[in-house]
Structure formats: C-alpha cells, structure tokens
Computed example of a mutant assay.
Amino acid sequence: MLSKNRELKEAKVQEIKSKLEKAQAVILADYQGLNVEEDTELRKKLREAGVEYKVYKNTLAILALKEIGIEGLDEFLKGPVSMAISYDDPTAPARVLNDFAKDHKKLELKAGLVQGEVYDLDKVKKLAAIPSKEVLLAKLLGSFKAPLSNLAYLLNAIKEKKESESAE
C-alpha cells in the first residue's frame, strides 16, 4: 500500500513539474475563505482567459520546484495555496486574480513565477496592470491606422485638386 501511495505522489510531482516547465506564468494565491459560488466564478473567469487553475499539496509543489531548480517560491507555499497557470499570456493569471481579489477580499495574491523568474507580490501586482495581448495588439494596430488614414485623406485631397484643376 505504501508503494502505491508513493507512486501516486511521484506521478503528481511529475504532473506539477511538467506544468511549471511549460508555463509562461504561474501565480500563487491564498483562496481560503472563498465560498463555492465565488470559487466557481473565479474558475470560470480564469478558464475564459485561458488560464488553468489548480490546487496541489504544497509539499508536492515544493518537490516539483526543486526538481526543476526553482528557488524562492517555497516560502509562499504555506497554507491553502492555489496556482493559476498560463501557457500563452504571462499577464493573464495575475490580471484575472487581481481583478477578482478587488471584489473578493478573501482571495490574496502571494507570489508568482513568470518565465522562470520568481515574482514577489509587488511584481505580480505590476504584472496584473499590463493589458492583455489582445488589447496591446489593438492599440498597436490603432496607432498604425491613424497615420495611414491621414495619408489616404491627403492623397485623396491631392487627387481631387488635380481633377478640379484639369476640369477648369
């Protein structure tokens, strides 16, 4: 029976390790005190943002972190801790958790791991303030559009002027 339990724990450590290695960002949060409705709402918002939300035993998470050589998160893995994991957008988990925590004081952000670097609470909050990739792309495209619109307007004005001159 002991070996079966050990096998299950080793498999779980490998699962955590695999997720951490693939993740762009992992944000740790203390979720103690959230009721079922709030937890369900949080999970839905994270899912919509493409973020995986997991709760693992802290000892297993610490073992996985050690296996991949990440130090500095152990101190945050105390008590009930959840992990919001994003494989695409490094800002998404911090942004969703931070926004949710504004209305639900029981949820507390603790720390994060972003592209292999350990982030303390201050850095996680700064990360949460960065707009999503889609918003940034929209702003970039908007900044391209304005000069192009002005150029098109100018070219059209020149064309109309030449046409009116040739008509005279």
Rank of each mutant, 00 (worst) to 15 (best):
K19A: 14
G50M: 07
S132T: 15
G142M: 00
G79Q: 06
E7L: 14
K45G: 01
E75F: 00
K54T: 01
Y31E: 07
L148Q: 07
I16C: 10
K125G: 07
I158A: 08
F144S: 00
A152W: 00
L121R: 11
L113F: 14
L107A: 10
G50T: 10
K145E: 07
L148D: 00
L65F: 02
L46C: 08
K9V: 06
A64P: 04
A167E: 12
L63N: 11
L28V: 15
E160N: 07
L97V: 05
A84F: 12
L109H: 05
A129H: 14
D30K: 14
K145A: 13
S143K: 01
G69C: 10
K105I: 04
V114Y: 11
I70P: 08
L154P: 02
S18M: 02
D89T: 11
L42Y: 10
A128G: 12
V135G: 03
A101L: 06
K17M: 14
N58A: 03
L65Y: 02
T40P: 04
Q24I: 07
I62N: 06
L141Y: 11
V124T: 06
E134F: 11
E10D: 13
L2I: 09
K44W: 05
E75I: 04
D89K: 12
P93E: 08
V114S: 10
S3D: 11
D39S: 14
I70H: 05
K44Y: 07
I16R: 02
K133G: 01
D74C: 01
L28I: 14
R95M: 09
I158S: 00
G50N: 09
I70L: 06
L107G: 10
